[in-house]
Amino acid sequence: MPIRTNRGRTAVYRRLWGWPLRSPRHLVGTLVVLAVVLTALGILLPKAIGKPGQTANGPGASATATSRPGVAAPVTVTSTLPPRLTSVPPPSSAPPDQDGVRVAKEWVTAWANHPDGMTTEQWLNGLRPYTTEEYLATELTTVDLARIPATKVIGEPQVVTSLAGSMEVDVQTDRPKVRVTLTKTNPGWRVTKFTQAG
């Protein structure tokens, strides 16, 4: 039976709007249903309206204006969006910076210099001028000097990769070959990582 009085309608409206506040379960259920509805609208509305940038001729199509003799041609303004990049281009290589090569050799020389009786603090002080503070504090403080097999550098550094702001250099010692990764910082080239081969 239809509601015929304003008083009856108000009671029905109050009951509908008050339902979510009756219990926490009602409130959570209402929020879940509302989230589902909003998500569905967010997915379906762009498909129904169409993507921006599409014209009647298709996406990225350029419009052409036709004119009849004696009638001014309409002015058509079109814009084409640049193509979307699908992959990041590789960084461009740069010629090796000799300062970086020098720092790599001096770092490996200081790394291999650990005579008997040298403390870890003394060894770290020898590496400090060539190493980033972060790498020195987080990685090199835990190095056991007795486990460093090399004692001196015996070869010239060989540049493996060279970019504008970083490079990798191999330095041959009397034991393993050491690969040093350097980064160009405000004070100059500094070592951020090293690995030993063999």
Rank of each mutant, 00 (worst) to 15 (best):
V153T: 08
P83T: 03
R190L: 08
T192L: 01
G70W: 03
S79R: 15
A73S: 08
Y130D: 08
M167G: 06
S93K: 09
L38P: 02
G18V: 09
K105E: 14
T142G: 12
T5E: 04
G188C: 01
E168I: 08
A104M: 06
R25G: 12
D97A: 06
W19S: 07
G50H: 04
P2W: 02
G58I: 05
L81T: 14
G198T: 13
R128K: 15
Q172W: 00
D174C: 02
R179F: 01
V71A: 03
G42E: 12
T86Y: 10
M1G: 12
W123I: 06
V160F: 01
K193H: 05
Q172I: 03
V143Q: 11
N186I: 09
S93E: 09
Q122E: 13
K51Y: 05
Q98Y: 00
G42A: 15
R179W: 06
G8F: 04
V33T: 12
I43A: 01
L124P: 00
E139G: 03
V171F: 01
T120P: 03
T132Y: 01
T66D: 11
L136K: 05
K177H: 04
V37C: 12
L44G: 02
E168W: 08
A61L: 06
T132N: 01
T138A: 13
R7H: 08
A112V: 01
I148Q: 05
T173R: 07
A104V: 04
L163W: 10
L85H: 10
A112E: 03
T5K: 05
T64W: 07
R190S: 02
P2K: 02
E156R: 09
T5Q: 02
P74R: 09
K193Q: 05
P69E: 12
F194R: 08
G60D: 07
W189D: 03
D97M: 00
T80N: 11
V88R: 11
G8P: 01
P83Q: 01
P59W: 14
V159Y: 03
T151Y: 09
Q122R: 13
A150Y: 07
V12S: 08
P69A: 12
K177C: 04
T86G: 11
T141V: 15
T76Y: 07
V171S: 00
I154A: 10
G60Q: 05
M118R: 11
P115H: 11
R7K: 11
T120E: 09
R190Q: 13
W123Y: 05
T39Q: 02
D170P: 00
I148D: 02
A11N: 04
G126A: 06
T5W: 03
W19A: 14
V75K: 14
W111T: 00
R175M: 07
A56Y: 07
S62D: 08
L145I: 11
T151D: 13
W17F: 14
T161W: 07
R175S: 13
K51I: 02
D170G: 01
A110L: 00
